[in-house]
Deep mutational scan, measured.
Amino acid sequence: HHGSGALAALHADGPHAGLPVTRSDARVLIFNDWEERKRSEPWLRLDMSDKAIFRRYPHLR
């Protein structure tokens, strides 16, 4: 199991509170979210491209 239990660094406060600090933090969040959702949506594709990251977390651009 590759990303399970990996912890992402999140901004503690300010405008980005609760959001990932780096792209690799964002990838951890996206992976964990996908892993949760694919139980009920097995067709869901995992997209951890930069484009997917920016779409979801525009502050990382």
Rank of each mutant, 00 (worst) to 15 (best):
T22K: 05
D33C: 06
H2S: 11
R61K: 11
I30P: 01
L60H: 00
E36C: 11
R55I: 12
P58N: 02
R37P: 00
H2E: 09
S24N: 12
L46Q: 01
N32Q: 13
Y57M: 00
M48H: 12
G18A: 04
A6Q: 11
H11G: 04
F31V: 04
M48G: 02
R27F: 03
A17E: 08
L60F: 03
H59R: 00
P15L: 15
L46V: 07
S49G: 04
G3I: 13
R45Y: 07
R27Q: 07
P42R: 09
I53P: 00
P15N: 15
M48E: 02
H2K: 12
A26W: 14
P58M: 02
P15G: 03
V28M: 10
P58K: 02
E35N: 13
M48T: 10
A8F: 05
W34K: 00
S24F: 12
K38P: 15
E41L: 05
R45L: 14
T22Y: 03
L19P: 02
G3P: 11
R56I: 10
R56S: 07
H1N: 11
W43R: 09
L60A: 00
R39Y: 09
G5V: 13
D25C: 07
R27A: 07
F54N: 12
P20N: 15
A52Q: 06
A9M: 13
R56T: 15
L10F: 05
A8T: 05
H59G: 01
W34Q: 00
H11V: 05
L29D: 01
P15Y: 05
D13S: 12
A6P: 11
E36W: 07
L7P: 09
S49L: 02
P42A: 05
R45E: 14
W43H: 12
A26R: 15
T22H: 06
I53F: 01
R37I: 13
H2R: 12
T22V: 11
T22Q: 05
A17D: 04
K51R: 09
H1L: 10
F31N: 02
W34S: 01
H59N: 02
R56L: 11
D47V: 03
L60W: 00
D50I: 10
V21Y: 04
L44C: 06
V21T: 05
Y57F: 14
G14Q: 03
P42K: 06
M48F: 07
G14L: 03
L29V: 09
R45C: 14
G3Q: 15
L7S: 14
A9G: 10
D47F: 03
S49T: 07
E35C: 15
H11N: 06
P58Y: 15
L19R: 15
H2T: 10
P42I: 04
K38D: 02
L44T: 06
E35R: 13
A6D: 09
G3L: 14
E35H: 13
H16W: 14
I30W: 01
H1A: 11
R61Q: 10
F54G: 06
R61S: 08
G14S: 03
S40P: 02
H2G: 15
R61H: 06
S4M: 12
M48W: 15
K38Y: 15
D25S: 11
P42Q: 05
R23F: 10
E36L: 12
A12P: 10
Y57P: 13
E36G: 06
S24L: 09
A12M: 11
K38V: 14
D25T: 00
E41A: 05
D47G: 02
W34Y: 09
R37C: 05
A8Y: 08
G5T: 13
D25G: 05
R55F: 15
P20V: 01
V28F: 06
S24T: 09
D13K: 15
P15Q: 06
S40K: 13
A52F: 07
T22N: 07
L46C: 06
H59M: 00
A17H: 06
R56E: 13
G14H: 03
F31G: 01
R55Y: 09
V21K: 10
R45I: 14
V21A: 14
N32W: 13
G14I: 05
F31D: 15
A17Q: 10
D13M: 07
L7Y: 08
E41I: 06
L19K: 05
R56Q: 09
S49M: 02
L44R: 05
H11Q: 03
D25M: 04
N32R: 13
G3A: 11
I53V: 11
A9F: 14
R39E: 11
K38G: 04
L7H: 11
I30Q: 01
A17S: 07
P42C: 08
A6T: 15
A6Y: 12
I53D: 01
S24P: 04
A26G: 02
P15T: 05
P42V: 04
P20Y: 00
P20W: 00
L29R: 03
R55G: 10
K51T: 11
S24W: 11
Y57N: 00
M48D: 05
V21P: 02
R61A: 11
A12L: 12
D50R: 05
G5K: 13
H59V: 00
H1S: 10
L60D: 00
L46P: 03
H16P: 03
W43V: 05
N32P: 00
H16T: 05
A26E: 00
D47Y: 03
I30S: 00
R39W: 10
P15W: 05
R23G: 04
I30K: 01
D50N: 09
S40L: 13
D50T: 08
I53H: 02
H2D: 08
G5W: 13
E35W: 14
D47M: 03
A6G: 11
R27D: 01
M48I: 13
H1I: 15
T22A: 06
A8P: 12
I53Y: 01
K38S: 09
R56A: 15
S40F: 10
D33M: 06
I30A: 01
G14W: 04
E41R: 05
H59P: 00
H59A: 01
R23L: 15
T22C: 07
